[in-house]
């Protein structure tokens, strides 16, 4: 053929933002291999999104930990603007308080996007837990708040159970997803062994393919068989 390839430089634009807020269980039952693998997964996730040309400018990450207390370890920031903390397991399981903190945080961030006129994508809240919430944690109240939040498209909620997690409780607080005009629960998923690295790799890939429309919301996520227990094709 012998013709020179076309080439042109693209303009620089401000990228639309999205938030992924991890709510992680650091109760004492997570100590040992579980917390080590979780830390390794979080660090790898941070590297992956930092290295990804597009995601690095779009995805803001936040980390909320819950044990006996609830702490915001990373407030929403682009990958190159924060250090991923190393988690330490201690204390009990204030799961409901942790998730509520994340919900408040993403709502506040969305308000800021709106106030400043920025285009944004729906935030994700990802809960990672291995146990039962403390006595007195208001699971029923949280369940209603998550149903309201996901049905009103405030956020996507994804509960992930690590070995020992009470999946019945996670199912109770699962978010909703509209498909074919019907609301369906986005069922909690259970991690296979301690495959945090595979899970975070999947989260990294998923962050870019959240699809939605005015009438049918569905999320075409990458294959989860690498890390989810009991997954069958």
């Amino acid at each position: 053929m012998g013709f020179k390839d076309f080439s042109a430089e693209s303009p620089e634009n401000y990228d639309q933002k999205s938030i992924c807020c991890f709510v992680v269980d650091v109760s004492s039952s997570m100590s040992g291999a579980a917390i080590n693998e979780l830390n390794r997964g979080l660090q790898e996730f941070h590297h992956q999104i930092s290295d990804d040309y597009q995601t690095a400018n779009k995805l803001e990450v936040a980390v909320v930990q819950f044990g006996s207390n609830v702490d915001m370890l990373v407030s929403p920031a682009l990958p190159y603007n924060f250090e991923m903390p190393v988690l330490r397991a201690h204390g009990s399981t204030k799961l409901v308080d942790g998730v509520r903190k994340a919900m408040t945080l993403v709502e506040g961030r969305k308000d800021w996007y709106k106030m400043t006129g920025q285009p944004y994508l729906r935030p994700w809240i990802i809960l990672i837990t291995d146990g039962e919430p403390d006595q007195g944690q208001d699971i029923n109240g949280l369940s209603a708040e998550i149903e309201e939040g996901t049905k009103n498209k405030k956020f996507v909620f994804l509960p992930i159970g690590v070995q020992g997690a009470n999946m019945n409780i996670l199912e109770k607080i699962a978010g909703y997803n509209k498909k074919g005009g019907e609301w369906n629960k986005m069922m909690p998923m259970k991690l296979q062994g301690l495959k945090f690295a595979e899970f975070f790799e999947w989260v990294s890939a998923s962050m870019s393919v959240v699809a939605s429309s005015t009438e049918e919301e569905s999320v075409n996520l990458p294959d989860i068989s690498n890390w989810m227990e009991g997954f069958e094709i």
């Binding site: 693209s10 303009p11 990228d15 400043t116 006129g117 920025q118």
Partner: peptide
């Protein structure tokens, strides 16, 4: 679109995103 059009920028001074819909002349 974001590789061919000027779609917007963040005005740091006024803390405001400015929408644009301008085909990139250079591109």
């Amino acid at each position: 679109e974001s590789h061919t059009f000027e779609t917007g920028y963040f005005d740091e001074k006024n803390v405001k995103f400015i929408h644009k819909n301008t085909p990139s002349q250079a591109f």
